[in-house]
Simulated scan of single mutants.
Amino acid sequence: MSTTAETEKTIWVHIWRGKDEGRHVSYEVPARENQTVLDLVTEVQRYHEPALAYRFACRVGVCGSCAMTVNGRPRWTCRTHVKRVVEGGEITIEPLRNMPRIKDLACDMGEFFDKWQKAGGKFKGKATRREPPMAVDPESRERKNADAGIECINCGVCYAACDVVAWNKDYLGPAALNRAWTLLNDERHADHAGLLEMATSEGGCASCHTQGNCMTHCPVGISPTRSIAGIKKMSLVDLLRGRAR
């Protein structure tokens, strides 16, 4: 008769250890029902490698901090079930691409957020706190354009998936430009002209090759590709209007 240990199913988890120079280290962990990739990483950290560095917070797909590269694809590990991605009883987990590595599965997202600011991502209101809130028509074209991209939580998955970011470090990236698009469609924003200039400057929307990797990999279904196309169109219209004056 087989023992429990002999019949227990396991998964081999290959995790990147180190910084830029490092190696994949393999760990054998128990396979369980409804197991997520984040569960695997946590299992390794608790029972095999206490020094393993990684990020997570909510565990329910709200914060986006647990994003990693799983079998070559950037994902939220808390929302990725093992049975969807396991290949031959094995999974490879690495840090997000296109960002400096700190240690193991943790990346430095400073550059990512700096570009978000360079694209004009900070809201500048027209009204003061003493004035009543401005009414916004929820059915207006601008409001719908903004709503299509407003749910971005800056997890960095689209940035890690973007091939243009990989070879052009000046490119602001899909998340930053998506944020700019939402503000360009917000009538409460005070500096549309300045924002459009920032979003169309060097490294801005013109650098996008419209490959759509950001749209394909976004965990919440946002299309930065669509947002960037909107900025390009808006900048062209603004140019033509300027020439017509």
Rank of each mutant, 00 (worst) to 15 (best):
C152Q: 04
A127D: 09
H81Q: 13
R141C: 01
A106Y: 06
A175H: 02
P174R: 05
A176I: 02
N185C: 03
R141A: 14
M99T: 13
M134H: 04
D170H: 06
D137G: 07
G110Q: 11
M99Y: 06
F112W: 03
T182S: 13
D104E: 09
V85G: 08
K115C: 10
P132A: 13
G89H: 07
R129K: 10
P174Q: 03
V82S: 05
R97Q: 13
A199I: 09
E187M: 06
R141L: 12
K124S: 10
A175C: 08
A146F: 09
R130N: 10
F123H: 13
R79M: 15
T77Q: 06
G156Y: 02
D137T: 01
D170T: 14
P174N: 06
R79W: 02
G121D: 00
Q117D: 13
Y159L: 07
I93G: 03
Y171S: 06
L195P: 08
N98G: 10
P100T: 12
T128Y: 05
E94L: 09
A199T: 07
N145A: 15
I93N: 02
L96F: 09
L177Y: 05
I150Q: 12
L105M: 08
E151D: 15
C158Y: 00
L184G: 05
I93T: 09
R179F: 03
R101E: 12
Y159E: 08
D147K: 02
F113T: 10
L183V: 06
E187A: 03
R84M: 12
K169V: 11
D114I: 11
E111I: 07
F112H: 10
L195R: 12
E142G: 03
Y171A: 04
D147W: 11
K118H: 10
V85K: 02
I102W: 01
